[in-house]
């Protein structure tokens, strides 16, 4: 009896400490967002003078900076937003289509060359994309795809990480589904689109968020490809408001908030499927 009480007490202490640790990190994780929001309400000179602070002062703080997004260089911020959305949607939809197809093919069929192709997927995942920038850029120049949205998404059409993930996911599905579909008179493609894709929805959910977030936040490659100011994505555009002569915080801070809010909303709506999907397609063997 006494011992059990002792163990319970120890467990309660441990539980308290663990939960406290989680709460501390939760604060660390959220604090930059709070800073960002508070700063977005302040005049730019205030930021330049005092830097970050958590205060919201009545009289000084207001939402007027958000109006600056509409007026700054004729509302170019919303042009950047449009570019980011177009690129994100194209890149994600095409990537999901090809990524799921290849991953499914590798998992569902046994064919000559399968191991070679899967090994290539793994090798490609280990090559830093950054070393391909220059030859790809030269290729774009020759193909006249510079300063073009298609040039931006070209390297992400068949994302290896998606192939890897979808393969892991499909390996966990019963192969009998394919046979059953065939008996019902479906072609193999029909089986994929009509039977398998609906089953793979959690995997699609997880990959949509990962791909959307990669694309939305991508900087280096779009910066190399795009050269017209109106075609810039949000990260490139925001980069142009940072200058040695002082940063345009009036635009930067509300712009940062507006850039992150839609992603967080999508995430919060889909987070259950997202986390379940990511966990189910775990990295096995």
């Amino acid at each position: 009896m006494k011992m059990r009480k002792h163990i319970n007490k120890r467990k309660a202490t441990l539980s308290f400490l663990a939960t406290a640790l989680m709460i501390i990190w939760a604060c660390v994780a959220m604090l930059p967002f709070v800073f960002m929001f508070c700063s977005s309400l302040k005049p730019g000179e205030e930021m330049l003078r005092k830097g970050l602070s958590l205060s919201i002062e009545p009289g000084v703080s207001s939402f007027s900076n958000y109006n600056a997004l509409n007026t700054y260089r004729d509302g170019i911020y919303w042009q950047w937003y449009k570019s980011s959305v177009i690129i994100m949607v194209l890149q994600t939809v095409i990537g999901l289509f090809f990524g799921s197809m290849v991953g499914y093919g590798l998992a569902m069929y046994n064919f000559k060359g399968r191991n070679l192709i899967f090994t290539l997927v793994l090798v490609v995942m280990m090559i830093p994309f950054e070393i391909l920038l220059l030859p790809l850029y030269r290729m774009l120049i020759r193909a006249k795809l510079v300063d073009n949205y298609f040039g931006v998404i070209l390297p992400y059409l068949v994302p290896p990480f998606m192939i890897f993930f979808f393969r892991q996911y499909v390996l966990g599905l019963p192969k009998e589904l394919l046979e059953a579909g065939r008996i019902d008179g479906c072609t193999d493609y029909g089986v994929f689109f009509r039977i398998m894709v609906p089953i793979m929805i959690p995997a699609f959910g997880a990959m949509t968020i990962l791909s959307g977030m990669n694309s939305w936040n991508n900087l280096l490659w779009p910066m190399i490809v795009l050269s017209t100011n109106e075609k810039f994505t949000i990260p490139i555009g925001m980069g142009t408001t940072i200058t040695p002569y002082g940063n345009a915080y009036d635009v930067l801070m509300p712009g940062a908030v507006m850039a992150v809010v839609p992603i967080i909303i999508i995430y919060l709506c889909a987070q259950k499927t997202f986390i379940a999907g990511l966990t189910a397609g775990s990295v096995k063997g």
Partner: peptide, 21 residues
Amino acid sequence: SLFFIPALTSIIVAGIVFRLA
């Protein structure tokens, strides 16, 4: 789910905030 949220921000935005912090 909360710990995942910082991964959704762009590095440029994160960099601006951390530089100031």
